[in-house]
């Protein structure tokens, strides 16, 4: 009986705080995506030829983010029937966008407005005993090109 009460409390807490946290995070992501819209981030390997002399700087951004208890519970139920796990999709989406934003922030800090050869790497870091996804880390990195005269290191 007590177990059930604890479970319900955890689910409720996870649901409420998780929702608030996610809504707030998406709001801040959208705001910062507007702010860093001038930084061009592309995955192409080689920059266009014939531009002015530029300095290359490795920039990266990373984030470790965790899913709440309610969503993990939902995902656990989902494994019974299979199909899309919406709960984790939004987690990964948030993490990727956040990592990219942090990378762009670093790029604009060194005076660059373009980042080439972006790589995204995702790893699940806390493998708990029950084997759940728990928290994931996303790393975004690329080479920022900044006009030589404007480089701020």
């Amino acid at each position: 009986m007590y177990d059930l009460i604890v479970l319900i409390i955890l689910l409720a807490v996870g649901y409420i705080f998780g929702r608030i946290a996610e809504a707030r995070h998406y709001k801040s992501i959208l705001r910062r995506e507007q702010q860093y819209r001038n930084v061009v981030a592309v995955a192409s390997k080689i920059p266009p030829i014939g531009e002015q002399l530029e300095a290359s700087i490795l920039v990266s951004g990373s984030v470790v983010i965790s899913v709440d208890y309610f969503k993990r519970f939902l995902a656990g139920l989902r494994t019974l029937v299979g199909g899309r796990v919406v709960a984790y999709e939004s987690l990964l989406d948030r993490a990727r966008r956040e990592a990219l934003l942090r990378m762009k922030k670093e790029a604009s800090k060194v005076g660059a407005n373009k980042v080439f050869n972006i790589k995204l790497e995702t790893s699940s870091i806390s493998k708990n005993a029950r084997g759940g996804v728990g928290s994931i880390e996303v790393l975004a990195y690329g080479t920022a090109l900044a006009p030589v005269l404007q480089v701020r290191l």
Partner: peptide, 10 residues
């Protein structure tokens, strides 16, 4: 892991 959100320490 219960509340969800970023693990800044990590």
């Amino acid at each position: 892991n219960i509340f969800g959100g970023e693990l800044k320490g990590y």
